[in-house]
Every structure is written in C-alpha cells, then in structure tokens.
Design a protein around this nucleic acid. Structure first.
Lengths: 335, 335
DNA sequence: TTGTACGCGTTATCAA
DNA sequence: TTGATAACGCGTACAA
C-alpha cells in the first residue's frame, strides 16, 4: 500500500510536508494541492495503525453489548453511532455471548488500544469487578450495573419496572403470579426480582418459591422452564418474564401446550422488541428510555476520551424510570 | 501501559529475548519462566497496534452486514464468529445503514489494516463495482451479489425462492398477487422480482404494474406502500414481500386497515426472523441455508488471508437453494 | 515554508 | 541461547 513516502516522492516534497498537509499544518495552498493530487494518484490512505501507535490511542470506540442478537441492542447502537460519527469516531461492535468470552474480547480491544469502550457487563462477583476496574481505558457501562465498580453507568430503574408490572397484574385480580428471572446474580435479574417481591409483599401476598423460576436472558431456557411449570401441579394465572426474549419463549410454551393468553394465563415483560405489535396478543411491557440513556452514555464516554485526566471526572450514574405500555396480554379477573 | 522493554528490564534480559519468548523463538526454559513471571508482574500485554504495523496486517476480521438490526444477520454472525475464533482471529462488526456510509466504513477498515472483510455490499453500478474491486484486502461478499465483481460470493438462489413462493400462491388459486420489492438495482431485489414475474408468466398471467411496489428493505416504507395499495382501487388477494422486515411492515398495514390475514389477503416472504412462530398468522416463507453459506464464507476468507498470493485463488461462487416453510398466512381460494 | 531526525512497540536479522 | 540494531509508517520538534 502507498505510504506517506510515496506521496512525498510523487509530489516532490518531503514527508513532513505531506504529514503537515493532512494535519492542518502550515503548508502553502499550492503545495497542498500538489500533495492531495499525488495522494489520490498513488491511492494513499493514512495507516491508522501507525497513527495510533504514535499517538497511543486509536479513534475507534468499541461497543460490547453482551448479546448482539437481542433486538434490544439495536436501539442503543443507532443512537451511539450517530453521536460517535459526529465526533469523527467510528464504532465497532464486539459480541461476547454472555460472560464466557467477555474477558477475551476486552483484552483484545485493550490491546488494539481502542479509544474507549461502552460495555454491557455480563459478569458478577468481586474479581470481576476488580478486573473491570483495572482496565485503563475510558469506559462507560450500561444496562447491567456492577456493584462497587467505580465507573460511569447508565440504566433503567429495573426494580420500578418490575414493581409497576406486578402491581398492574395485582390490580387486575391476579394472585398466583410467576416470576421468570434471568441469570442469577446479574443486576437486572436481582432488581427485577426485588421489584416483584416488593409488590407482592405490599399486597400482603406470600412468595411461592415454586413460582420463582430461574432461567437466563435467552428464549430457549425460558421456554423449557415455562413448559415445566405449566405441566406441573401449580399453575399461575399470570407470568412476569424478566425480558423480551424470555417473554416470547414463555408465550411460545403456553401456546404449544394449548393455553390461551390472556384467557388462561396473563403475561407481562420488560423491554421492547421490534414488531412487538405483531405478536399476538400484543404484550403489556415496560419500556426503557433507550434514546436518552444511549445519548448520555456516549456523551460521557466522549468526555472521558477527550479529558486529559481520567481521575478528574468522578464516576457518574444515571438511572431513568421506565414506562408501561399496555397491551392485551393480561386478563381482568375481577369481572 | 507496560511494554516489552519493561518486561526485559524486570527479567534482566534484552527485548529481543522477550520477543522470542512470546513467539516460539529459541529461549531456554529458565529465562522463559523468568520472562513470563516478569510479564505478569508488570501487567504486560503485547501492543497489537505495533505488531500489526510490523507485519502489515492485523488479526481482525471485519463483518459488514449492511443493516446490523436485521435479525437475519444474527445467524451469519454466530457461525462466522465460531470459525474465526477457531482460527485465532477476532470479528468486529461495522454497521453501514445501507450504502450511505458504506464507503466511509470500508475506508476506515482498510486504514486499520484489517486482515479481511466479509461484506454484504449495498451498492450498485459500475463505479461501485470498480471501487470494491480496487480494495486490496482479502474480501468475501455475501447475500448481495455485485455483477461483474471479481470476488468470492456466497448466497441463495433468490430467483428460485420468489418463484417457489409465487407458484405456491398460484396453486392456491391466487391471481391478483402483489410483489413488494426492496431497493431497485440490488441483486436480491431484482432476482426476486424475476422469480415472481417468471412464475406469473409461466401461469399465463400478465404482470399488473400497479401491483409491483417499490420499497426498501426496511419495514416502514413497506408499511406505507402497502397502506397506499390497500386504500386504492386495486386490491390483490395475496402479497409477496421481498424480505422478512418488509413482510412484518405489510402485515401491520393490513391489520391496521382492518384486513384479516389470510382470510382477506394472503402473505408470503423471504427470510426468517426469530420468534417467527409467534407472529400471527404464522407466515409462509422461504428460508436460506445460512449456516452452510456462512461457514463457506468464512472458510474462503481465511483461505485468502492465509494465502501468499491473492491472485492464485480465482473468484469463487456458491449459490444454494432455499427451502419453503409453510405457515398459515395463505388462503386457499379453490374451495 | 520545508526538511532532518527521532521515537512509538514490535519483529527479524545477524553477530556474539 | 542471547543481544544489538534496523526496519514498519507516522507525527513532531527543531533546524534550515
């Protein structure tokens, strides 16, 4: 590939002049023109590798969403890309399939000297926290909060989301409500569980441990657990699924077993999916203010990247309330 | 960050010895141990930027799927990641939002000296073809074929997919069938249109240009166009939507206008979405053999990356047939 | 306004 | 088996 040298030779100037021409240095218009012409002629494109090696950092921002196939993620990406582009930085996305490959991916990105990372952290425990904290790259976390981690975080009030949905179902007269949780230990899982439990207790209802299912944030396990529940002795009148994909798994399980939603079993969930309107029945769900959250996340990251001194900016947190969107997936038992 | 120098100093050896220790050079077991200990102590991780600058290429493979939010893409990613990982290479994903930012993104990836690219090319026309051809990076295209481009390509027989679906609807007695196409000029759009037209002609039916809608591969335009069609004077008995997202847009439009599917209007489409089973009615659609295609795509790319001489491998093409999955979205008009 | 020389962190060559 | 040194392509003092 053509280097800065080839351009210099072709334009009949020195390499430093070429460099200056590309970096708003003091170069006469005439020579600048000769240089750009020469660059085009030899097909020159600056070697970002060399630039980054020199400067110590690249202009790449890594987005690490955990599971790239969760449609939930598309909304984050769109907003983040827009702002990154405006700041003349590019987004690259790296999938991790949960926590399994996360460390490998982060090491790679670190070694690539990315300018910053936006990460949905999938791990738990103190070693994990320590690991994240030790990464000396500007970093903003979103969605999953890691307790004790001294990093920026943006997310939704998950406890509130679960509580609002549970209260809604309680108001409709439901008493046997099943909660299907994601991976145990994850922030969103635990907060959503707490919201559910709080609403039940406030209504003076006990928690039936048989109706507290443990799954993960993928559809197939939710499908299996729901099937197991509905073929067993205890049958709830309503289910709160901890996320969108799980809700669809649970719904599929109901349908496959011949249950009707909402006539036989009601269903609510947290998080949107595209074409939610086409899933029948239309689900009642809690929606996160993703646009606002994503905008803040990238704004904070850019601030950190452009700041001389990382430590000068203390860790910040933003937690916004969700909204409830009513569908047709809940039966009114009071009538 | 710690460099090879810090390790050398700490281990009391020269930097070249450290380098050798990390690159299966001839180093005694004793010094190797000292070096790995020292590396751990100072928290050394090799600077991939410097390595790549030296070697001229990184170990990153870029996946450029056009629209990252199309669920269609998740299947490609999963398979490709698995094989890349096995070859000790990492995948980064770059979104382009159609053709608009594609060139910018490709330039960036080129400047980053990625090892290779897997791209779903969104452009058309001879200049676009020439541009892609001139990129001197190992490259495999998928899904969209660019006529005349001398590059590897894997994809599905799109003409066949559309023909099979159209024939199916014709067999059920439909005569007024509407075709909604994606961006004009795109390979998949044109082939799918041809398949539709071929099936109609073979059945001795004329093409009604009023029933040939032009949209793009996103849901909202399909929604608008379907709405326009169904509120107009000519009403088809069936619709063939050119992809999954468009089908959902068309379905939503029908529902919003009070039409029932399939009783009033039948619908078929090409490409799967996850939880397709939950969309009511379950759609009849053509599915691509994505696993096979993705496996071949990454295999070919790795071959090119590891080959000394690019030109030694002539451009290859693989086109596999689709399968039809029957749902409940088509009415039988013969009864 | 332009050119020379050095360094970023690494690998490869060659000498010790 | 080890170590000194020259690249890789670029940016930037500093000198001319």
């Amino acid at each position: 590939m053509a280097t800065i040298r080839d351009v210099a030779k072709r334009a009949g100037v020195s390499i430093s002049t070429v460099s200056a021409a590309f970096n708003e240095g003091r170069v006469s218009d005439e020579t600048k023109r000769r240089i750009t012409d020469a660059a085009r002629a030899v097909g020159y494109s600056p070697n970002l590798l060399a630039q980054s090696l020199k400067s110590g950092r690249s202009r790449l921002i890594a987005l690490v969403p955990g599971d790239i196939t969760n449609p939930f993620f598309g909304n984050w990406l769109t907003v983040i890309e827009k702002h990154a582009l405006a700041a003349n930085r590019a987004i690259i996305v790296s999938n991790t399939h949960g926590v399994a490959r996360e460390q490998t991916v982060l090491e790679l990105l670190k070694a690539q000297r990315v300018a910053g990372m936006l990460i949905n952290p999938q791990g738990t425990g103190p070693e994990y926290r320590a690991y994240l904290e030790a990464i000396d790259v500007p970093l903003v976390t979103f969605d999953q909060f890691v307790p004790g981690l001294e990093r920026d975080y943006v997310g939704t009030d998950n406890e509130l989301a679960a509580r609002m949905l549970t209260e809604y179902m309680l108001r409709l007269g439901h008493r046997q409500i099943c909660f299907i949780g994601g991976q145990p230990g994850l922030w969103t899982t635990e907060r959503r569980r707490e919201g559910f439990v709080a609403a039940m207790h406030q209504a003076g209802l006990p928690i039936d441990e048989d109706l507290m299912l443990i799954a993960n944030y993928e559809g197939d396990v939710a499908y299996r657990e729901t099937t197991r529940l509905l073929t067993g002795p205890k049958r709830p009148t309503a289910i709160l699924a901890s996320n969108n994909v799980m809700a669809l798994g649970a719904l599929q399980a109901m349908i496959d077993l011949g249950f009707r939603c909402p006539q036989d079993i009601s269903l609510t969930t947290i998080d949107d999916v595209p074409w939610m309107g086409l899933v029948k029945p239309r689900l009642t769900f809690a929606i996160q203010p993703l646009h606002e959250l994503a905008a803040v996340a990238i704004k904070w990251l850019l601030e950190r990247i452009e700041s001389r001194d990382q430590a000068a900016i203390p860790p910040r947190r933003m937690i916004l309330p969700p909204k409830i969107i009513l569908g047709e997936s809940c039966a009114d038992l009071r009538v």
